[in-house]
Amino acid sequence: MELANIEKLIEKYENAETSLQEEQELKDYFQQTDVPGHLLEYQAMFNYFDESNAERFTKSIPLKTKKTYWKWLSVAAAIAIMFSIYTYNANTINDLEKKEAEFAYQETQKALQMVSKNLNKGSSVAIAGLREFEKTQNKIFITNK
């Protein structure tokens, strides 16, 4: 770019009337080494700006994910609670069933025992009847002989 143009831009720059694009043009111009003596200050300024812009933040930035930890913790807690409720319910159901089954078993046994008792009673009665019948039969046969 010709010097006259640069000087015009410089004047605008001093009055803060340049656009970003024009300032970039100035920066580019002052990258070269042979700059007229009266513009040396500007070269120093623009070089300094360039230099400063190249500076980088080198440390690490720790991003704590505390929040998500809490979220996962609550999920885990919910699962644990649901699981414990489930196993508790399952256990109580098993106990109840066991008790019911035992009760039914005992009832059945009682009923069967009753039946067998009565059956025994009945059979002894029947045998006694049978003996009585035999007795009378013998009597009849003996008297008839």
Binding site: T33, L40, E41, Q43, A44, M45, N47, Y48, E51, S52, A54, E55
Partner: peptide
């Protein structure tokens, strides 16, 4: 004072650090 390219004059370097 980050190093400028070597060809730049010492005077300019001096000037740049003074801008800071």
């Amino acid at each position: 004072d980050n190093n400028l390219s070597l060809e730049r004059s010492i005077e300019l370097k001096d000037c740049v650090s003074r801008v800071h």
